[in-house]
Structures are given as structure tokens and as C-alpha cells.
């Protein structure tokens, strides 16, 4: 479970940034006092236009960034007080991440397993299971630099899931991927749900959200403007498409 409570991230603006944004304010909120809960065994989707604060929110949940105020509990552990406990429980994947070109899939996955402090007994069966499931065994010994984007994405998945995390955080996991490759991510999210994991992912593609998610939140300009179950959202958009409702909600907030 992920419980986000009054989470904010404030950035100080430099003189140059003030000029660029044509503003006198000293600081801006990338994320402004948002709260939501992702339930175990359900897929939660964070929606929003570009620059809404999706990545910042997910980075705070993943302990990469420190919040300015507010708190997040990941599987009951505080990201502020026990970041290392949180890190043990999460798997983090973004669509834009690359890998180390000169290493092989096996070496990369082993590196992250070691950094997670996995023992050899834990690592071996888990690796075999993941590699089998994702079909990595075919290109096990090739260097990443020689692999296709789809193959790389599979390795990225294996790397994020090697320690069998309870909570998985995906930041726009399908951005820049073709349909076939994106499908491996969609399958991954489904299997995570089946295994009873907590899943949160950010997206701006409505069809993906419609396909996968149980709950959704929409943020715009750092503020939470909608948070409910997918069912309730579908009901709300009865006379129009899901995307239209999304646009409507964002526009209402901006006006």
C-alpha cells in the first residue's frame, strides 16, 4: 500500500529562472499538497498533462527526491524516516532509462541484486524465473549495446523486479516504445496485480489507463484535481470518451 499525505515539493527559483518564467515569485510548487492512497493488489494510475508533477511525485515516493512537506508511507514505512526500508520494498522503472551498454543482461541484473543485498540462494531461482518469464535467456550473454529496444526493456524490467518488490512504481513506462514492446510492460503490470503487489504508474495515454487501472488520480500544475476509482470515472464519462473527460477536468482546473 502507498499512502500519500499532503505531499509537496517546492523549488526555489534562480534569478534566471524567474526571468524565463516572467514571475517575481521566489519559488514554485512542482507538487502542491496532494494526498491519495494506492491499495494493495490494485493498479493505481497517475494522470496528468506534461509538467503536471507526475514524475516528481513518483520520484518522491521512490525516495529519489525529498519532499518539502508531507509524508508518504510505502507498505507502512516512511520515506522520510526509513528511506532504506522503503527502497527494499519498491521496484522503480521509467520508460526513459537506459542501461549500461558494455554489460550483459546477466551482469546488470546481478549488479542490482547485489546492491539490494540478495543472497545467492535468493537470487538464483528469482533470476531464472524472471529470465524465463521475459525470454531473456535467448540473449543472456550479449552486451546491452547489441540489443534491440524491446530486449533492453525486458532487461530493465528484470532489473527492477529482481528483488521481488511489494510495491512497483512505473514512471511513464511505455513512453517511446512501440506497441509490441509496450505490451510487455502491460503484461508486467497485470502479473504484478495478480501477485498482489501494489502498482502505481503514471501516464498520459488514456487507452493504457483504461486497460489496466483500478483507481486513478489526475494532477494538473502540481495539484490533485481528481481521485476516484476507474469505475466512477467511467460512469462520469458516460456521454463522452475517457480522454474528453480528462481534458475537461484539466481545463476546468486551469480556468
Amino acid at each position: 500500500m502507498i499512502e500519500v499525505q499532503g505531499l509537496s515539493k517546492q523549488y526555489k527559483l534562480t534569478k534566471k529562472q524567474q526571468k524565463e518564467l516572467q514571475t517575481q515569485t521566489q519559488s514554485i510548487f512542482a507538487v502542491n499538497n496532494i494526498s491519495f492512497t494506492c491499495q494493495k493488489g490494485r493498479v493505481f494510475s497517475l494522470l496528468g498533462p506534461n509538467g503536471a508533477g507526475k514524475t516528481t511525485t513518483l520520484r518522491m515516493i521512490a525516495t529519489i527526491l525529498q519532499p518539502s512537506s508531507g509524508e508518504v508511507l510505502v507498505a507502512g514505512k516512511s520515506i522520510i524516516k526509513e528511506p532504506n526500508e522503503v527502497r527494499r520494498k519498491i521496484g522503480f522503472l521509467t520508460g526513459s532509462t537506459n542501461l549500461y551498454d558494455r554489460l550483459t543482461p546477466e551482469e546488470i541484473v546481478k549488479y542490482f541484486a547485489d546492491l539490494h543485498g540478495m543472497s545467492a540462494q535468493e537470487y538464483k531461482p528469482r533470476k531464472e524465473q524472471l529470465f524465463e518469464q521475459l525470454g531473456i535467456n535467448d540473449f543472456l550473454k550479449k552486451r546491452i549495446g547489441q540489443l534491440s529496444t524491446g530486449m533492453k526493456q525486458k532487461v530493465s524490467i528484470a532489473r527492477s523486479m529482481i528483488h521481488n518488490p511489494e510495491v512497483v512504481i512505473f514512471d511513464e513506462p511505455t513512453s517511446g516504445l512501440d506497441v509490441i514492446t509496450a505490451n510487455s510492460i502491460i503484461e508486467l503490470i497485470r502479473s504484478c496485480k495478480e501477485e498482489g503487489k501494489t502498482v502505481i504508474f503514471s501516464s498520459h495515454i488514456m487507452s493504457e489507463v483504461d486497460l489496466l487501472c483500478d483507481d486513478l488520480a489526475i494532477i494538473s500544475k502540481g495539484k490533485l484535481i481528481y481521485s476516484d476509482s476507474m469505475e466512477a470515472y467511467r460512469e462520469r464519462s458516460q456521454d463522452q470518451s475517457l480522454t474528453e473527460t480528462f481534458i475537461q477536468l484539466v481545463n476546468q482546473h486551469q480556468n
Binding site: 520520484r59 521512490a62 525516495t63 529519489i64 532504506n84 526500508e85 527502497r87 527494499r88 519498491i90 522503480f92 522503472l93 521509467t94 526513459s96 532509462t97 537506459n98 542501461l99 549500461y100 542490482f112 546492491l115 539490494h116 543485498g117 532489473r159 527492477s160
Partner: peptide, 18 residues
């Protein structure tokens, strides 16, 4: 540049040690 740092920062290891 590769963006690998993000994933590296989510592992439960001391950043100083890394």
C-alpha cells in the same frame, strides 16, 4: 546522461558507498 542514476538511487544501499 543515460538516466541510470535514478534506478541506482532506489536501491537500499548507502549513497556514499555507491
Amino acid at each position: 546522461e543515460r538516466g541510470t542514476i535514478e534506478t541506482l538511487l532506489t536501491v537500499p544501499a548507502s549513497r556514499f558507498h555507491i
